[in-house]
Design a protein around this nucleic acid. Sequence first.
DNA 1: CACAAATATACAAACGTTTGCAGGATTCTC
DNA 2: GAGAATCCTGCAAACGTTTGTATATTTGTG
Lengths: 325, 325
Amino acid sequence: MTTITDIALALGITPSTVSRALAGNPRVKEQTRLAVEKKAAEMGYERNIVASNLRKGRSNIVGIVVPRVRREFFANFIGGAEDVLARAGYNVIICQSHENLDDEIKALKALKNYRAAGVIISHSIESQDGGHIRDIMGNLPIVQFDRVFPDLPGAKVVGANCDGAYQATKHLIEKGYKRIGTIAGYMSCMAFVERLAGYRMALEDAGLRYDGSLVYPESILYESGKESARKAIADGCDALYCCGDYAALGAMDAAREAGLSIPDDFGIVGTADEFWAAIMTPSLSSLGQHPFDMGQAAARAFLDGRTGTEVIPMELHARQSSNKH
Amino acid sequence: MTTITDIALALGITPSTVSRALAGNPRVKEQTRLAVEKKAAEMGYERNIVASNLRKGRSNIVGIVVPRVRREFFANFIGGAEDVLARAGYNVIICQSHENLDDEIKALKALKNYRAAGVIISHSIESQDGGHIRDIMGNLPIVQFDRVFPDLPGAKVVGANCDGAYQATKHLIEKGYKRIGTIAGYMSCMAFVERLAGYRMALEDAGLRYDGSLVYPESILYESGKESARKAIADGCDALYCCGDYAALGAMDAAREAGLSIPDDFGIVGTADEFWAAIMTPSLSSLGQHPFDMGQAAARAFLDGRTGTEVIPMELHARQSSNKH
DNA sequence: CACAAATATACAAACGTTTGCAGGATTCTC
DNA sequence: GAGAATCCTGCAAACGTTTGTATATTTGTG
């Protein structure tokens, strides 16, 4: 592997000049810069990024910390972020917290240790606040997305959760459902808290009473969605706004098992607009997020050093599962 | 940030001893090792991994190069690989080739530059052979998966493509379909070549003639699947084995648009067993891969320095789309 | 032509670790 | 108790960059 010293030797100059030349430092003469660049190309030089990182005390690595890569939302987010970060010369290290505080801390420490240029994170369900993030990362740029701690400074990219849930709930009301519950997700996440607020607002704006007993703040996995839906049916609900499509799917199955027909006896709206929502039968109405766009937005927020909160719109895709006649 | 020099100073010893102590080198006395460990913990020391990597000339980074993270198969694979690599103390850098040779080369160079400990790769569709991989990575461990170049040495993890396609085709034959085509995928990938071989073998074992004109070696995306299926229908096929579920979905839509009923007029089997295959209507028969397991297997192959080819079984999930009466 | 100002390069230290070699201390053997 | 063998630790160089400061070179001004 050729080093700047090799180039310097070949040209009869010093490594420092080579370094500056390659960095485009205006202190080196045009002529020598060209000579250096030519020689470097000739010798197949590639900057040793590890040495560079050590000396500079920071790397061109951006860490992305998510609960799980396998989840479609996060995979798409990563896709979007990687696209714009790679174009800007950054490399992306992926860390999974597995919804687990310890793993999250471990990941953040590893990133700190790599002198990552910044971290893009959606915190685990176990994390109660952003203290550990701030403690570990110090004043490194942090971009939070989807699940964000408002107290933590730095950029944030979130879906229009409140507005989206409002739309979804309003849609159910307009379709004529009378007793609408919600599978609300864990209240430790802002995203879910906001959706609940949107749900409530829609009810109240329509002159309906908000009833806390129709809020099922469980996980949004298939099984717990099904379980919550059973309770909702027992509680007399005729519709559910679900904060996740898998929970919505569970709710569908619960309704069917209870002998209810969808959408006439029971209406359902999910969230995320997974690919399959449109192709199943009955097709599932769902509130679409834009994970890929969010990833791009988060990456750009990092690159530009922006610091506010960016809200990515969500739109309702009304389909059969909520189309009461 | 405390360094080994700080610890050495605090204990009145030298950095080299501290380094050795922390590395568990048997050349340092038990007693001093304990003292060092205590002090290190006390001072909140964490090894500067960048410096360590520079000195050692290699890092604990493993690169995973895939066409796209957003694809379920790859996202799940990465999930599996990350799980076992993280447990072994490695960090994972994700690179996307976007099915593009240039990006793949760029990614490999970046990984080489980071002195990655190894690379796990599924090559882009544009890559014709493994020459560039070998050229760039030199003798670094390379694990290939799914799409592999047989000429490239090193470990390989693949699905049982031939066997799987055989099962799928045999299933269609046994269900009574008479003229079975295949949406075969690009022939630049081993995986697809093997599946085609399995398809052919199943036909011939059943005494049916293999007809090259019923092989549609196009991409396996939805649109091209639909297009290929239109041709297949025009060619008189009554069933298709599709090398991807999205292509299978396209085929379904093409059949429906042609007024054929599934499964009675037209049978379809897909590949990958995406989540939605089971819940759509009619449900899609599909050949299940195990991307998460493959990820784990690939990571273990890397860790153990294994070098053979590991074959992960595929199983057929027979559902409505191929259930001719 | 002398002196100042500007320009271009060289020198050397630093980033924090690892590691071959050497040397000091301890233990062992006869 | 002398010598060898063993055990620990220290010294110093190295990994390849980057960068503050100093020096050398060129240019400009009166």
